[in-house]
Design a protein around this nucleic acid. Structure first.
Length: 571
RNA sequence: CGGGGCGUAGCGCAGCCUGGUAGCGCACAUGGUUCGGGACCAUGGUGUCGGAGGUUCAAAUCCUCUCGCCCCGACCA
C-alpha cells in the first residue's frame, strides 16, 4: 500500500484531549478520531489492526468449538424486564423508544438475546453443549467515558455464551474458554494474568478477569496476587489473612467520653488522641437501596463497598449524605459511632472482633469515646468488608504474601448458571425426560480495548511498537526521496518482493523530508522498516531497522527483501 | 451526579481581567531555494469567536441561560 493512496492523518502535536500514552498515540498516529464523548471512528490503520485481532480471536474461538453468529444491537425492553436487568443495569443501558413508543435498549451485552434464541430452538440434552459467539459493537452509557477506547460508550467486543446440561458441563465449557483466552492473548503478544473477580451485575457464581499488566497511568485496576502460589484477584474481590497484630493482653477498661473539638477524620483523631489508627474504629453510614446501615471497620483499613453491597443484597449502595447522618446519629459527620446508635443495623468487619479498648465517635458533636469494647454495643453481624492489602498473607496457600500491581482488563469469564435461562424459560429435556434450565456461561473480550492495551504495554517515547501479530502492516518501506528514480525503483522492488512472500507493506511515497517520514514511521509502529537513501545506495545498501529497539542493519540492495524477512521472522 | 477547567481557522493556542475593525504557530495553496531525523523565504486563502438572549453607541471580551468537551471525585466520617 502506498501512503498517499491510503489515509493516515498523523498529528505533529499532541492532541489536547488525551491523557494516557496509548490514547495519545492512537490519535497522533492517525488510528482513531473521536466523534463524540466515548465514540470513535476507526481509521484505516485501526481497521487493519482490528482485522488482525479479530482473525486471531475467530481462529481460537472456532478451534475451541464455539460457533459464530451475529445478534442484533437493538433489543426489545421486555427481554431485559424478564431477567430483571432492565432495573439492575439501569443507567448504563442505552435506551430509546421507537416510533410506536415501545421501549428498546441498545445491547451492552447479549445474555438475554442469546438465551431467547436457544429457548426457541433447543429442546434436548442431545443438542448440548453449545457455545455461540459474536464479534460486534456494544453500547454502554458509561458514567464517564475516558482514555479513548479504554472506556468508550460504543466499542467492539467478542462475546460468547455457553449452554450446558449441568455444572460439570459448564466447567468444561468454562475451561475451554479460559484456554482459548490464554492462546488469544498470547498471540496478541502479551502475558495476561487471570484473576478472580466479582460477578457484579452479570450475576452468577464465579468470575474471572484477564488482565494485561502495565506499569503506566493506563493501568485501570489494581490486582493483588500471591508471590508464591497462583492466587490472584482484583482489589474488589481479593481476600487475605490479615497480618496478626501483636496479641493484645490489655485488660478491657471502661469507656470514657473525650472532648475532640472538630476532630473528624482518622488522621485528626489519631493525632489529637495520640493513638494509632488501628486503635480506632470507623463507623460509616450507608444507604442500601435507601435504607441506612452502619459499617464498622478498623481505622487504618479501607472498606470494600463491593463486599458490603454483596452481603447486603442491595442494588444501590451509597454513602449517606450529611443531613441523614445528623438525623440518624444526632451528631455531625465525623462523630458517628456504634455506641448507643439506634434504629440502624450495624455490620462490622471481622477484624473488630479482636480489638480491645478502641476509639469510636460518640454520636455527639466534638466528642469521641475511648476504651470502647465489644460489650459496649451490639453488632448485628460480623463479616469481611475490608479491602485486602499488599503485604498480607495469601488466603489460598497461607504462606505467600500479596503483591499489588496494575492492569487493564481485556477479557472476562462468568459462570452464570441459570440466572438467565430460568427467568426466560429456556429449558431442555434431559435423558430422564425431565425439563431443566440450561446452565450458562458468558465470556467477553474487549476487542478495541485490547488493541489499546497493546499500545499501552508496547510503546516508547517515539510511538507505537506493535507486536507482529497486531501490526496493521508487517513492513514499512521508506524511499527517502521519491524524486530519485533509483531510490524509488529499489523501494518498489523490495515492496513487491515482500508482498509476493505474503506480507503486507506500507510504502511512504510522500514528497516529504526524511525526518518527517522517519518520525511518522516511529509513530505508527510497524515492526520492521526499510529505508532507501542516497548514502546507502552509493555503497549498494539499504537500512533495515526493527521498531522494537531501533537496531539498524545495513544490507546489500539485492539481499534486502530476504534479510528483512529474516529479521521479521526473528522478532 | 458533585467539583474544577475549556469551547476563538483543520490542529495547538493567545486575545477576555480593563468592551473599540479577530491574531500567532503548525497545517494548507502557489513560486523559489533546500534535501538522511519534524527546512527556509515570499505570497495567498481560511473564522456563525459553541449557541440563544440581555446590557451598551459598540460584545470574542460584561451579565443570564443553554449545549458540547476535558480532568478530578463519587473509598471522606
Amino acid at each position: 500500500m502506498l501512503w498517499t493512496k491510503t489515509f493516515i492523518p498523523t498529528l505533529r502535536e499532541d492532541p489536547a484531549e488525551a491523557e494516557i500514552a496509548s490514547h495519545r498515540l492512537l490519535l497522533r498516529a492517525g488510528y482513531i478520531r473521536k466523534l463524540t464523548a466515548g465514540v470513535y471512528n476507526y481509521l484505516p490503520l485501526m481497521q487493519r489492526a482490528l482485522h488482525k485481532i479479530t482473525n486471531i480471536i475467530r481462529e481460537e474461538m472456532d478451534a475451541s468449538g464455539a460457533i459464530e453468529i451475529t445478534m442484533p444491537v437493538l433489543h426489545p425492553a421486555e427481554l431485559w424486564q424478564k431477567t430483571g436487568r432492565w432495573d439492575t443495569v439501569g443507567k448504563e443501558q442505552m435506551r430509546l423508544k421507537d416510533r410506536h413508543g415501545r421501549d428498546m435498549v441498545m445491547g451492552g451485552t447479549h445474555e438475554e438475546v442469546v438465551t431467547w434464541i436457544v429457548r426457541g430452538e433447543l429442546r434436548s440434552y442431545r443438542q448440548l453443549p453449545l457455545n455461540l459467539y459474536q464479534i460486534q459493537d456494544k453500547f454502554r452509557d458509561e458514567i464517564r467515558p475516558r482514555f479513548g477506547l479504554m472506556r468508550g460508550r460504543e466499542f467492539i467486543m467478542k462475546d460468547a455464551y455457553s449452554f450446558d446440561r449441568d455444572e460439570t458441563g459448564l466447567r468444561i465449557a468454562y475451561n475451554k474458554m479460559v484456554d482459548a483466552y490464554f492462546k488469544i492473548f498470547k498471540r496478541c503478544g502479551f502475558d495476561v494474568k487471570m484473576v478472580e473477580s466479582d460477578v457484579g451485575a452479570m450475576g452468577g457464581t464465579n468470575a474471572h478477569e484477564f488482565m494485561v499488566l502495565v506499569n503506566t497511568d493506563g493501568g485501570e485496576c489494581t490486582i493483588l496476587s500471591c508471590d508464591r502460589c497462583d492466587y490472584a484477584a482484583n482489589i474488589e474481590k481479593a481476600v487475605s489473612i490479615p497480618m496478626a497484630l501483636p496479641k493484645s493482653n490489655e485488660e478491657p477498661k471502661s469507656k470514657e467520653m473525650v472532648f475532640t473539638p472538630n476532630m473528624r477524620t482518622i488522621e485528626e483523631v489519631t493525632a489529637f488522641l495520640k493513638k494509632p489508627a488501628e486503635k480506632l474504629v470507623k463507623t460509616l453510614v450507608y444507604l442500601a437501596d435507601g435504607k441506612p446501615v452502619a459499617a464498622l471497620i478498623r481505622g487504618d483499613r479501607q472498606i470494600n463497598e463491593i463486599k458490603l453491597k454483596n452481603h447486603l443484597h442491595c442494588l444501590e449502595l451509597e454513602m449517606a449524605d450529611p443531613a441523614t447522618i445528623v438525623r440518624l446519629t444526632g451528631a455531625q459527620v465525623g462523630f458517628t459511632g456504634p455506641v448507643g446508635l439506634k434504629g440502624v443495623p450495624i455490620v462490622a468487619d471481622i477484624e473488630i472482633k479482636s480489638m480491645v479498648n478502641f476509639v469510636v465517635g460518640a454520636n455527639r458533636d466534638d466528642t469521641h469515646i475511648i476504651n470502647v469494647n465489644l460489650d459496649d454495643f451490639s453488632v448485628d453481624e460480623f463479616i469481611e468488608i475490608r479491602c485486602a492489602e499488599a503485604g498480607e498473607v495469601c488466603p489460598r496457600c497461607g504462606i505467600g504474601h500479596l503483591v499489588s500491581s496494575r492492569g487493564i482488563e481485556v477479557g472476562n469469564t462468568f459462570m452464570l448458571g441459570t440466572k438467565y435461562s430460568d427467568p426466560l424459560g429456556a429449558r431442555f429435556i434431559d435423558e430422564n425426560g425431565e425439563e431443566k434450565p440450561f446452565i450458562m456461561g458468558s465470556y467477553g473480550i474487549g476487542v478495541t480495548r485490547t488493541l489499546q492495551a497493546a499500545i499501552e504495554a508496547f510503546h516508547d517515547e517515539k510511538g507505537i511498537i506493535w507486536p507482529k501479530s497486531l501490526a496493521p502492516y508487517d513492513f514499512h518501506v521508506i524511499p527517502l526521496f521519491m524524486s530519485e528514480p533509483r531510490q524509488k525503483e529499489v523501494a518498489f522492488d523490495i515492496m513487491s518482493k515482500l508482498e509476493q512472500a505474503g506480507y503486507s507493506v506500507i510504502l511512504d511515497d510522500r514528497d516529504e523530508r526524511p525526518g518527517v517520514k522517519f518520525n511518522d514511521a516511529d509513530l505508527i509502529g510497524m515492526p520492521v522498516r526499510i529505508a532507501i537513501g542516497e548514502k546507502g545506495l552509493k555503497e549498494g545498501v539499504v537500512e533495515i531497522v526493527r521498531r522494537k529497539d531501533l537496531k539498524m542493519e545495513k544490507v546489500p540492495v539485492e539481499k534486502a527483501a530476504e534479510r528483512a524477512l529474516e529479521i521479521y521472522r526473528e522478532l
